[in-house]
Amino acid sequence: MSSNKNQRTITSLVQDRPGVLSRISGLFRRRGFNIASLAVGSSEEPGLSRMTFVVEGSATSLKSVAEQLDKLIEVVEAKDITDKNIVWRELALIKVSSNEKTRSEILDLAKIFRVNIIDIGVSSLTMEITGGKEKIDSLIELLRKFDIKEVIRTGRVATLRGTLIEGRPDGEYKSHSGANIQNDSEEIYESGSV
C-alpha cells in the first residue's frame, strides 16, 4: 500500500455516457486534485463503467474526494478505498532495445519477474507486466541500462479483498488476521508468466 497520505485510491461506477469523464476531471481540477492515474473500462453491469483513480492533493481537500465525486449525477457509486484492505494491479508494456548480446540477460530478468514477452524484433523486445506499482517500478529500474524505448502503463485498478469471515464486509483489515494475504513486497514475484 502506498504510504503517501496525500494520495487516495478511489473506485467508482459511472454511467457510460459522453461527457462523464470531463465532469469528473473538471471536479478534480476545480478542487485542486491531481489525477496520478486513471483506469477506465466497462463493468459487470451493462451501461456502467468502472473507473479507478489515484488522486493527489492536500490532505484536507482529499478527505471528501469520494463524497464530492458521488455528488455527480452520473456517478452511481464512489468509494475511497485507500485505507481498506485492497488488491490492486497495474499493467505495463515495456519496449526495450535488445541485441544478440543483451537479449539473454533481458530474458533472464523477464523470467525472474515472470513477465510475458509479447513481441520480439531485431533490435527490441516488448514485455507485458502486471502487478503493483513497486514491482513495475523495479523492473523498469533494472531495464534502464538496456535503453528503454517506451513505457506504457494503464494506471491502477483496485478492488476490496473478499472477506474470509462470514458476515464481515469486504475490505476490512481485521477480518483477515492470520489469513494468507500477500502484501506488496511479496507480490513482486507473484503474477504473470513468461
Binding site: 478527505k63 471528501s64 463524497e67 464530492q68 458521488d70 455528488k71
Partner: peptide
C-alpha cells in the same frame, strides 16, 4: 444533507 460538507 451534503456529506461532502462535513469536515470541509
Amino acid at each position: 444533507i451534503d456529506a461532502s460538507e462535513i469536515g470541509k
